[in-house]
Amino acid sequence: MTEFIQNILKSAGPNGVVVFSKTYCPYCANAKDDLSSIGIAPIIVELDRRSDGEDIQAALLRMTGQRTVPSAWVNGVHIGGSSDVYHHVHQGGLFRNRKQIFAARKYAEHSGIQHCGAENGTPCIYLGDSD
């Protein structure tokens, strides 16, 4: 599973943002909403929609020491969970570079990625099913 995670992190596109999530998790929804509010188009891996989701979550625990989701990453670096994403979005932090946002939108438009519900039409990559 560690190799799967590393491959996802490497393929994160120009903004480099990946969120390991569960569809029913309110903290995950908050993190995704915070990212969308500033135009970030993350790769979203919904662990509860994958047959190997528990294995991925166990590998994330071994890699980060964080047991819960969301597990947010930027450019291959684990930044934490929902409150960490909130802090980075609302305090500037890692997402201050607006060029990354526009590059992410351009990448998404040319790669067939679907809109994931952000008010501004921000696309996302959804990796739900492992089959």
Rank of each mutant, 00 (worst) to 15 (best):
Q66R: 02
Q100H: 09
D33V: 02
I79F: 04
P70A: 12
N97K: 12
A118C: 14
Q57P: 02
G53A: 04
I125E: 14
A31K: 02
G81N: 00
P42Q: 01
Y24P: 02
V17R: 06
D48K: 00
A103Y: 08
P14W: 03
G80K: 00
L35E: 10
F95E: 01
G53F: 07
S51A: 12
K106W: 09
S71P: 01
S111L: 15
T23G: 09
D55F: 01
I43A: 05
A108R: 09
I44K: 12
N120A: 12
T64G: 08
S21I: 14
N75Q: 15
D48H: 05
F102K: 12
V89T: 11
A108Y: 08
I79P: 07
S21L: 12
G93T: 06
H88T: 09
G92M: 05
A29L: 08
T23K: 05
Y86D: 00
V77W: 02
Q100V: 06
D84K: 04
V74Q: 08
S37A: 02
H90Y: 11
D33G: 02
P26T: 05
H90E: 08
Q66P: 01
G117C: 11
I125Y: 03
P123R: 14
G80F: 03
V74T: 07
I43T: 11
K106I: 15
S82K: 03
E54L: 07
P70N: 03
S51N: 14
I44D: 12
G39A: 01
I38Q: 05
A108S: 14
H78N: 12
E109D: 04
I125R: 15
G76M: 05
G121E: 05
I40D: 03
I44T: 15
S36N: 14
Q91E: 10
G81A: 10
H110Q: 15
G128A: 11
E119K: 12
I56E: 10
A72W: 00
E119F: 04
A41F: 03
D55M: 05
R67P: 03
G112W: 14
